[in-house]
Amino acid sequence: MAERPEDLNLPNAVITRIIKEALPDGVNVSKEARRAISQAASVFVLYATSCANNFAMKAKRKTLNAADVLAAMEEMEFERFLEPLREALEVYKKGKKEVSDQKRKEKEKKETDNDKSREEEDDEERMEEEPEAENDAEEEEVEN
């Protein structure tokens, strides 16, 4: 799908911001250094993808999953990323679940608005319907 080579670059502004936030205040990062880090990041993505894909292939799966990426980090000797990645994944899952709960709530709200006999008390019941929300998330994943 990547028709132009620049599509395989990451946006410079974002990369620059991440670098600045990681380094002490006032460090000057040369333009050449920024470009090199950006290229390195693209190579990192490719390397990680290829490692993760090997794990998926070994397990005879066609879809890369979170465990494959984590295993790839270990293989690449970036174990130091594992803990922050696991934490971020938890937050991400939690956020996703809440978003899908939210969507479902809104949808149901519309329905209940139409059905005028219902009142707000239903809200609390809806929060407990977790399994359904997880199914929603999985369906979204398959689309990729």
Binding site: L10, I18, A40, A41, F44, V45, A48, T49, A52, T63, L64, N65, A66, D68, V69, L70, M73, F78, F81, P84, L85, A88, L89, Y92, K93, K96, A137, E140, E141, V142, N144
Partner: peptide, 15 residues
């Protein structure tokens, strides 16, 4: 899948 994509993106930032 979405989680793998999210993790790779996050890992790239850490990198």
């Amino acid at each position: 899948n979405q989680e793998a994509l999210f993790l790779t993106t996050k890992a790239t930032e850490l990198f």
